[in-house]
């Protein structure tokens, strides 16, 4: 069996005395989409932040492309292709749409020119082309989510960590966001998706983990998890 792109072993993360993630073990294989679902406060966002080293680990190990990540800063992981789209999208509101994309390009330059990369992004997100000189903070929630996804697309990463892309979006926009993730998957990007929107997430993913109070309580192929509606309901409260 080949080495997973992301391998997490008995990871513990704490905020002071509060243990938010307790001994999580999970894996993400190349090109795979995996969903981590759970109720509000289950530790999903904490888990994702710890994976990209935005939070320190208490114990456990995280390996990216076979190498431990513990000594790498978040920026190094991003440059090595482990890209995190934070909750609430994390667009830079006081910068223009185009500037948001330009920074992402400057920090992790692709083989192609910025103009070419931008053209590709604008083809996929025509709304962003229309709004390219607008401040990102003046975009609608859906447009900001598209911008956050577009920032990853400007130089496609190996692994994408996505935190609640559906948060605060209207149903049609949620569908669009998931459709974009589906395209990323088709391009071979491995995706670890954290979601409260259990059904959409599991329908997109090939495998899933159910997180409850910082622990993984169920795991398996998405279809199997979806079939076990009783258990799912029980754990998601």
């Amino acid at each position: 069996m080949s080495e997973p792109v992301l391998a997490v072993e008995a990871l513990h993360v704490a905020y002071g005395p509060i243990k938010a993630v307790r001994g999580c073990t999970l894996r993400l294989d190349a090109g795979e989409t995996v969903a981590v679902v759970g109720a509000n406060g289950a530790g999903k966002t904490t888990l994702l932040r710890a994976l990209s080293n935005l939070l320190p680990h208490e114990s456990g190990s995280v390996r990216y492309l076979g190498a431990p990540t513990e000594r790498a800063g978040p920026h190094e992981l991003a440059r090595r292709g482990l890209f995190h789209i934070p909750e609430g999208r994390g667009t830079l509101g006081r910068l223009e749409v185009r500037e948001n994309l330009r920074i992402a390009y400057d920090v992790r330059p692709a083989d192609r020119s910025f103009e070419a990369a931008l053209e590709r992004v604008f083809e996929r997100f025509p709304r962003l082309r229309e709004r390219h000189d607008q401040l990102a903070g003046t975009l609608s929630g859906g447009e900001q989510q598209m911008l956050a996804l577009a920032r990853a697309l400007i130089n496609p990463p190996r692994v994408l960590l996505v935190d609640e892309p559906s948060l605060g979006l209207a149903p049609a926009l949620v569908e669009e966001a998931f459709a974009v993730l589906g395209e990323f998957h088709a391009e071979g990007i491995a995706i670890l998706l954290v979601e409260q929107n259990v059904y959409s997430a599991l329908r997109l993913a090939q495998r899933g983990y159910v997180l409850r109070q910082g622990e993984i309580v169920m795991e398996g192929p998405s279809a199997k998890l979806l079939a076990d509606a009783e258990m799912l309901k029980h754990y998601l409260g």
Binding site: G73, G90, E99, D106
Partner: peptide, 25 residues
């Protein structure tokens, strides 16, 4: 220069800046 945008990103949101690959520290 492009550096100005990097500074803008750090000022705006250090977590996002780190997540897109900027060495904030």
């Amino acid at each position: 220069s492009p550096l100005q945008r990097v500074l803008d990103a750090v000022r705006e949101d250090e977590h996002v800046a780190g997540a897109i690959g900027i060495n904030v520290v």
